[in-house]
Design a protein around this nucleic acid. Structure first.
Lengths: 185, 185
DNA sequence: GTCTATAGGAAGATAGAC
DNA sequence: GTCTATCTTCCTATAGAC
């Protein structure tokens, strides 16, 4: 008798691992199947539209994580400095200290761009707004705050890329260490 | 009678376009064939080992470009400030003002990582050394110079990622504008 | 150097039994 | 929910004519 499946959350996490390692196009059904322990048919049972549904579920999961972890920080009564530190800690956990790639980067490449491009763009813009809010709270005028927020995003993603390329998470960790200065310093 | 082929340089450039847009795995022989106007067989005539050979040719071409354009700047008698500005201009041309992705980023994903990972790592380390040289010339101690060079690489690649994600080259151009400060300011 | 044809396999996706 | 079997399409790669 078939075992009750792993919780959907767990499945989506494992799918995310594959997408983050291989990109959208490179994540074959075989890899997805192996990573979850689910056969092709089971994957289609959970995600009727196949790979695109799986990728959407992973994106949703990442956005939900940000909503659960980061938004409360932003809405708290903490000081800007405390908020930055909490966000840094959240990013460190989310990107596994620099060992995990960013889906927004991978989903803006190749065929995935056509499907997910607008969503990627919107998520980046949202993240920029959120970070700019902290910079404004710290007293920076709106233009300057937005510029700082964008610099922070550039540093984060650049740190991830360089860390992955060098095979060394030091650059990403250094970015996180400097984020307070980038954003409100 | 078959037309004499386009110069190899031109062919490699067009292959590079495909790799940069779709990544290594996403660059199918069909895309490569369409972009160059060469049939599959002709591609195998030029690149006997298929896609891997094509990717190597593109990487070689990019490295040669850097060697031809950037190394002379570094070896010139110009001031550090002049060198940074010349490098910035070269990067601006190379990345088409932010519209072109970096191969080093794309070739560190998925299956390509196994094949090109070490080479990517070495190129990044070389670029860091080159940039650190300018920072040292400007009077920064070695440790600080290397840190600045790495920050510059983080900013460049982060700027490319964010620009691509947002569909707007402004972030990359702003990174280039700030590179002098990042490196020697 | 380019062409057509094709091998041989892996891809995404579906059908129907259990 | 999971399984096996299968369909179609696409992929990389090769062979051989011109």
């Amino acid at each position: 008798m078939p075992r009750p499946a792993a919780p959907r959350e767990e499945i989506v996490d494992r799918l995310g691992d594959v997408f983050r390692r291989h990109g959208y196009g490179g994540a074959s059904l075989k890899l997805l199947s192996d990573a979850t322990g689910l056969g092709r048919s089971s994957l289609y049972h959970y995600f009727p539209n196949g790979k695109e549904d799986m990728a959407l579920a992973v994106l949703d999961s990442a956005e939900r994580w940000m909503g659960d972890e980061v938004v409360p920080i932003l809405e708290s009564a903490a000081s800007p400095q405390e908020k930055v530190r909490a966000v840094v800690a959240a990013l460190d956990r989310f990107y596994l200290g620099g060992r995990r790639s960013c889906l927004l980067e991978l989903f803006a490449i190749g065929d995935a761009r056509e499907v997910f491009g607008p969503r990627v763009s919107q998520r980046l813009a949202n993240l920029r707004s959120a970070l700019a809010g902290i910079a404004r709270e710290a007293g920076h005028p709106p233009d300057d705050a937005t510029r700082r927020a964008e610099d922070a995003m550039i540093a984060i993603h650049g740190g991830l890329v360089v860390s992955r390329g060098l095979g060394d998470t030091t650059p990403f960790r250094r970015v996180l260490d400097g984020l307070e200065k980038t954003l409100i310093g």
